[in-house]
Design a protein around this nucleic acid. Sequence first.
DNA 1: CAGCTCTTTCGAACCGGTTCGACGATGAAG
DNA 2: CTTCATCGTCGAACCGGTTCGAAAGAGCTG
Lengths: 334, 334
Amino acid sequence: MATIGDVARHAGVSRSTVSYAISGKRAISAETRDRIARAIEELDFTPNAGARALKTAQTMVLGLLLQFHADEFAPAMLQYVLPVSEAARDQGYDILMVTDPNGPSAIHRIADSDMVDGIVLLDVTFADPRLAAIEEVRKPASLIGLPRDPVGLDVIDLDFGEAARMLVDHLHERGHREIILISPPHHVVERGGSYVWRFRDGAVERAARYGLQIHPYYGESRQPAITSSVNGVLDAHPQATALIVHNDATVAALPAILRDRDVRVPDDLSVVSLYSRDFGEEFSLPFTAVESAAADLGRRAVEQLVRRITRSPDAGPPVLRFVPPVITDKGSTR
Amino acid sequence: MATIGDVARHAGVSRSTVSYAISGKRAISAETRDRIARAIEELDFTPNAGARALKTAQTMVLGLLLQFHADEFAPAMLQYVLPVSEAARDQGYDILMVTDPNGPSAIHRIADSDMVDGIVLLDVTFADPRLAAIEEVRKPASLIGLPRDPVGLDVIDLDFGEAARMLVDHLHERGHREIILISPPHHVVERGGSYVWRFRDGAVERAARYGLQIHPYYGESRQPAITSSVNGVLDAHPQATALIVHNDATVAALPAILRDRDVRVPDDLSVVSLYSRDFGEEFSLPFTAVESAAADLGRRAVEQLVRRITRSPDAGPPVLRFVPPVITDKGSTR
DNA sequence: CAGCTCTTTCGAACCGGTTCGACGATGAAG
DNA sequence: CTTCATCGTCGAACCGGTTCGAAAGAGCTG
């Protein structure tokens, strides 16, 4: 690979002149600029990232931390990966993706060695051990998911409580008096996924306000447990006229389950749900739902992170941004 | 962040001594080694990755190139991401994940600037434009997916032709005489996904050898097109007694479709398939299948790549490795 | 005790960029 | 015709590691 010195020699100027010609930080005569441009072209020169990072203390790389949970319905977390990566590229950054199950040590590894300028934390839990590590390494970070204490970091998440309230409202307006709620599997709560109870509490509280009966359950993540659990729940509440599903695996399996029971939607049962837009499209889900947009969250997280890194004045104080839910009516209620 | 100079001063030695103490490339007395270790501990020193890369010409980072196709059933490619990342970590490497739709330019960007030591190319097509770029940048690379001309690179892929032959054998042994084959959507062929016709040709050729009738079709990737297309195909061949499905989206939707038609498996129809193990588990697919293991492919690709990078003697000449298919009998045939 | 080897450590150079201060040439102002 | 900016360029220092050659000191040999 050609170095900046090769270019300089080839163009008959000094290394600093080449550097300035590239960065434009000082005026260079049009003539030499052309000569340098030609030399760069001919030698196929690309600046060495390590050397540049060394001097400028900027790597133009963002860390993306994700953790996998074996028991999980897979597409969930990966939906953020692509949008985050694309948003980063738009801002001139690359993505160092880390899946190390030991999050805190991974954070130290990539941050202490200055491999990244900032970090995106995916699927942040209520008491996430990674937050302490983020504080220690003193790097800008953006969190997707709500922790108990954001320790002064930027957080973005869907407003799950509001989403639940909107869905209950939707059912209440249509006169439903008894509702079943299926949440994510219980182990997600144990892991600290606050969205489970944020949604659940929102729904229960709003139902109580209207005097609606609501039966909250934790769902399953794999077949055939899903089918038997849904069947069990429906059998237990024959009077219920509506179902709220906050569980990707269950909602994907639901059309088949209901067909087998000969339950028509919305005639026999109204169904509303919460899932991400991509997910709904992939499975062509026919349910009225709050469609969260992973792409939107991911992009915003990256943009805010870059503002922090560049100390942009419009970064403002640490933001806790709840994305307002949007309900899409697909006619699965009445 | 503390530098190696800080550590040296703190321990009362020179920078080079600290470096040797860390790398172990020269003997250092036990006493000073301890002193240095303590200084490192106290100052919380981690070597700067950029500086190290600059001198050693090694970044300990692998590039992972993937491209997304909007029309795709999402989980497919992402299944490789986690295994690749974990295998890399096991070998001491991190992953720079690039989703740039312009693959060749992305390759130049990360390779020419020496951000990575090697590159894993995912979902390589028959005439993949990224291969030319890989050749130009002269970096070790591992391909997952079979190109027409591997230009001397290491390739790993499932042996799709053999998989098809095994499945046809399986049906032939059980006396089936008329078979339907559903391949991936046709646009995958147009994109150059060689596995489509490698599988298809394998199946057709083997069926011909036995004198079986086989009806090959291209499937769909999204509902409701999947359902109507499968129904159409089944209607068109009422005599067919077996179905081979090489299409994730279709196989996921198949249980519901068959139930609606009141077709029992295997009594009325035998079904065999090809999908990845994780995928099958996620959807609890009840079909006898060749289960490909994305985790296995990803890991092997990384290991071979690292052997290339380190010029390990057991890297050998460029390998074209076809992973032999394994059939898992789930009783969906008779 | 001179001469040699071995061990341990140091200083300097280097990797490939960026950036600061200075310097010569040019043109405008006084 | 000085004087003084301004412009364009250069040389040197620096970022934070690694590595080579050499030096200092200890121990051994003859």
